[in-house]
Design a protein around this nucleic acid. Structure first.
Lengths: 163, 163
DNA sequence: GGTCAATACTTGACACGTCAGTCATATCTT
DNA sequence: AAGATATGACTGACGTGTCAAGTATTGACC
């Protein structure tokens, strides 16, 4: 069966003195810890500009498609996130004047969102600091290791598709 | 300087047709997406048992130290999370009878938390299903790849310590 | 042309995560 | 021992993630 794998995993875990029942469990926990750490660093960079990390992500998505606007759910789909939070997220961005929304004429169920000039200007200010942090966060890895990381994560996501 | 690295990174990004200004940015985004996906899968496993993923993590920590109780902030420190949320987290666990809290006699500022028998029993029910999902979530990787993943993440975290 | 299902959101409720501020207790200083 | 400071924990407020339920449209089917 997969006895061999388990034995190796257990050996590993004992060697490390960790209370994990599988190597995979240790890896999943490491994944979470790492992401939370990096997320906090990124959040600390964008928040001085008056937006949260999620708000920043929405602005990036809207800039990417601009000048073509996007319907609300299309943003949610491109985001790391699920549907319902997106409404309130857009509410706050609109309140800050960073995003504008208009009801779509052809399909009146849709609401089209675009990045406002103020949003574009803000993003431009943030581009460099954000890029610096992204590089810094992984600066201890060689380029080959960064590519390995991308490859591994792509594989994990491909193997965990929603259905 | 690091011109060479940047050139290679840009070439990579263009080859992929992605709008990233650095390989590192792509990797960070992949990290976030992957973790969110795995986190949702795990949450879906524990929630039928009436606890959230964070509540489950707290119970694991308390079981790990049991029968020795832990002061509130010690739990926060071991958790992936920051201080203030932990109080309310423990409030809910205590309300469900899964955790018990008593003020410490030697240092009356501290509150000592331990896992209740009901909490232990619940965890035991969840152990196997959780382990199954952890393995499943990474089942597309070889053991060597899982170890690579752990190594990379350990390195990233070591390079991003809080100070 | 009227009913029905699907689509695109929106709202309400609850659990976090996080910051700032507060309170009680310890510890340090002098 | 009195006062200053640090520590451990809790509260309030805001943003977000998520589920369940609701509303407005659209499109299909009969």
């Amino acid at each position: 069966m997969m006895m061999v794998d388990q034995r190796i995993a257990l050996a590993h875990e004992i060697r490390q003195g960790r209370p994990f029942s599988s190597l995979q469990q240790a890896a999943v926990l490491g994944l979470m810890r790492t992401t939370d750490q990096v997320r906090r660093r990124l959040a600390a960079v964008v928040e001085p500009y008056g937006v949260t990390l999620q708000q920043y992500n929405v602005l990036r998505i809207l800039r990417g498609s601009s000048p073509k606007p996007l319907p609300t759910l299309e943003i949610a789909a491109r985001l790391i996130e699920q549907t319902p939070g997106i409404t309130r997220l857009l509410d706050r961005l609109e309140a800050k004047g960073l995003v504008s929304r208009v009801r779509c004429a052809e399909d009146r169920r849709q609401i089209l969102c675009s990045i406002a000039p103020a949003g574009l200007a803000l993003l431009e200010q943030m581009d460099e600091p954000v890029d610096v942090i992204d590089r810094e966060a992984l600066s201890m890895l060689t380029l080959e290791q960064v590519e390995q990381l991308i490859t591994l994560h792509d594989a994990i996501r491909a193997g965990n598709e929603d259905p």
